[in-house]
Simulated assay, not measured.
Amino acid sequence: MSDDVAQVGQPRRRGRPARSAAGAEPAARDRILTAARSEFAERGYDKASIRGIAKGAGVDPALVHHYFGTKEQVFAAAIELAFGPTFQVPELIPAGPPEQQGERLARFFFGVWENPVQREPLLAIVRSAVGNEAAAAVFRDLISSKLMVRIAAELNVPDPQLRSELAAAQLVGIALLRYVIKMKPLADVDPEYVIALVSPGVQRLLTGDAPAGDAPAGGTPGHASS
């Protein structure tokens, strides 16, 4: 688990629980985060509770407070864990030719979502954030500080913060329609075709330039394999 995740969970401690508290071992933190993700996914942010999270993890509620503090802090830690792979996106911007930035980001982003192991926790967190303003604020602040600001810092264009947010909005919007709402035909189209179509727009937002190849014209889109 990353140091960042540990830091999110640390700000508030309510006293160290007794040794008899169930699950008072290092693995308990991971079980709590896994249970929190399930609790938020199944019950939504409003109805999720520290007690329910503790029950799902097989620990005492005091241990959840000890590791993470409030429900908001548990949610923030769950977001950071689920979105861990996505936080690597800013490192991709200077990692290759500038004219391929849009394709690199789109390919990495959809690669994360196409992985079933990574997609399920992402879906759980996004569903919770969409339905509650408090959860949305936690989600927004974390994504802004851990992702958008870092992407903007790598861009050598006017209004880098706005451009990075517009690029993210395009990718996230497609992800919502494809993986959450499952709108057809978008949900069934081969991801390579989606990447080819969306990359030029992302490239223009990040650099102001269109990539040399641009999007494919015409043709019949492929379909994603099940």
Rank of each mutant, 00 (worst) to 15 (best):
R163P: 05
R163T: 11
S164T: 10
S164W: 08
S164K: 08
E165G: 01
L166I: 12
L166D: 03
L166E: 05
L166G: 06
L166T: 07
A167T: 09
A167K: 03
A168G: 05
A168E: 06
A169N: 13
A169E: 09
A169F: 02
Q170K: 12
L171V: 03
L171H: 01
L171D: 11
L171N: 02
L171T: 01
L171W: 03
V172W: 11
V172L: 13
V172C: 13
G173H: 11
G173W: 09
G173T: 09
G173Y: 06
G173A: 14
G173F: 05
I174C: 14
I174Q: 12
A175H: 04
A175M: 13
A175G: 14
L176Y: 10
L176V: 14
L176E: 10
L177V: 05
L177S: 12
L177I: 03
L177A: 15
R178S: 05
Y179M: 04
Y179K: 05
Y179T: 06
V180A: 15
V180R: 09
V180L: 14
V180G: 03
I181W: 08
I181E: 11
I181G: 00
K182D: 07
K182C: 01
K182Y: 03
K182M: 00
K182E: 09
M183N: 10
K184N: 12
K184T: 07
K184E: 15
P185T: 10
P185G: 07
P185I: 14
P185E: 11
L186C: 11
L186V: 14
L186D: 10
A187T: 01
D188C: 07
D188F: 02
D188E: 12
D188H: 05
D188Q: 05
D188S: 13
V189G: 00
V189D: 06
V189T: 15
V189S: 04
V189W: 02
V189A: 04
D190T: 00
D190G: 01
P191I: 00
P191G: 02
P191E: 00
E192V: 03
E192F: 01
E192G: 14
Y193D: 15
Y193G: 05
Y193H: 14
Y193A: 09
Y193T: 07
V194P: 00
V194M: 00
V194L: 03
V194K: 00
I195D: 00
I195L: 01
I195A: 03
I195M: 01
I195Q: 00
A196T: 07
A196M: 08
A196K: 15
A196L: 13
A196W: 06
L197H: 09
L197F: 06
L197I: 11
V198E: 07
V198A: 14
V198W: 02
S199K: 13
S199C: 13
S199P: 13
S199N: 07
P200E: 08
P200L: 07
P200K: 09
P200D: 10
G201D: 12
G201S: 15
V202P: 04
V202G: 06
V202Y: 02
V202Q: 05
V202S: 03
V202M: 05
Q203L: 04
R204T: 13
R204K: 11
